[in-house]
């Protein structure tokens, strides 16, 4: 199973978003798109060219964008907002909280350039707190797909789900290893490899890092079970419990602060239901900085080696 996880090339998840938006636009006339002056970055050109009357350029005014999206949803539209993850969350948290989450509006908050792999723009733009913020909002579904194909599928699938969704993706070209034209099931963890020694729960770009780490560990005789947690909320609790009841130890991996992210969510579940040793591969209470994506993942402890190291550590703690 692990051997079959092969990169077929590199493409960005934001390109997957653009492709998915165009496809769902063709299928659903009620899908509309909004953008706060980042059309090119969000790869929204195909949608805009095909459906100019269903696209709204908001300018650099994200708070207004979220309110307008809520209003469009009242009128029966399915609005997709597009801007960087930083400006999709922290900058507009109160607007999302009141006009979208509390009001249960069918708004899809589509957030690119999340995490360290944004790269050279540096810490002002590298948001590492967004998963935590968004999973705290009652009623929000939080989706973090792992590659181009999955982001395309997720972008389309969220239109079928009534309610607010946070869709998080990124900037860099990244290995594509999930199936083309896959069916994306919100809330259903994706088992990528079965194993017996340790459960690795990863999300977003870190899923590929986990796959690479597991391949290296296999050579040492360590058998990793890998789950792609593409839906952070609602968490697929059954899948997590099922896996951990077998392996009895856990590594989580995410391009996010350790506080508030996927690891927190898994730890909370296990503390209640099935206590087990956990190691967290995540940014540890710091901001990022300028640099190339892989250099940054290395410096902040999110490299393939870091995932493998976390597995070795957690195995020593396993009873």
């Amino acid at each position: 199973m692990l051997d079959q996880l092969i990169s077929t090339g590199k493409k960005s998840t934001r390109d997957g978003f653009g492709a998915g938006l165009f496809e769902i636009g063709k299928q659903k006339p009620e899908v509309v798109a909004l953008c706060a002056d980042l059309i090119g970055s969000l790869k929204m050109e195909a949608f805009i060219e095909a459906f100019p009357e269903r696209f709204f350029q908001i300018g650099i005014a994200e708070a207004n964008m979220m309110g307008i999206a809520a209003g469009l949803a009242i009128g029966g539209k399915i609005p997709y907002t597009g801007t960087f993850a930083n400006f999709s969350t922290g900058r507009v948290y109160d607007q999302l909280r009141q006009s979208v989450a509390y009001s249960h509006k069918n708004v899809k908050v589509c957030a690119s350039h999340a995490g360290l792999t944004l790269g050279e723009d540096g810490a002002t733009h590298q948001i590492l707190e967004d998963i935590g913020m968004m999973r705290m909002l009652p009623g929000f579904t939080v989706v973090v797909p792992c590659d181009y194909n999955q982001t395309k599928a997720a972008t389309m699938a969220i239109a079928e789900h009534y309610g607010p969704v946070y869709l998080r993706f990124g900037r860099p070209d990244w290995p594509v290893f999930t199936a083309e034209n896959q069916k994306f099931e919100i809330g259903k963890a994706q088992l990528l490899a079965t194993g017996s020694d340790v459960s690795i729960f990863a999300t977003g770009h870190m899923v590929w890092q986990a796959v690479e780490a597991a391949k290296a560990l296999a050579l040492e005789g360590v058998s990793c079970e890998i789950y792609n947690i593409h839906t952070i909320k609602p968490l697929d609790e059954a899948a997590v419990l099922d896996s951990v009841s077998k392996t009895r130890c856990v590594v989580t991996a995410e391009e996010h602060q350790r506080n508030g992210g996927l690891g927190d969510s898994i730890a909370q579940l296990l503390a209640r239901r099935l206590p087990a040793p956990i190691e967290f591969v995540a940014v540890n209470d710091s901001f990022g900085e300028s640099g190339k994506p892989l250099e940054l993942l290395d410096k902040y402890g999110l490299s393939v080696n870091d995932v493998a190291g976390a597995v070795r550590t957690v195995l020593t703690r396993k009873k």
């Binding site: 708070a63 307008i68 809520a70 209003g71 009128g75 006009s99």
Partner: peptide, 12 residues
């Protein structure tokens, strides 16, 4: 926030 929401409803 209300004016933004109203604009969205008007666009719909």
């Amino acid at each position: 926030q209300g004016l933004s929401v109203s604009i969205g409803a008007a666009l719909a």
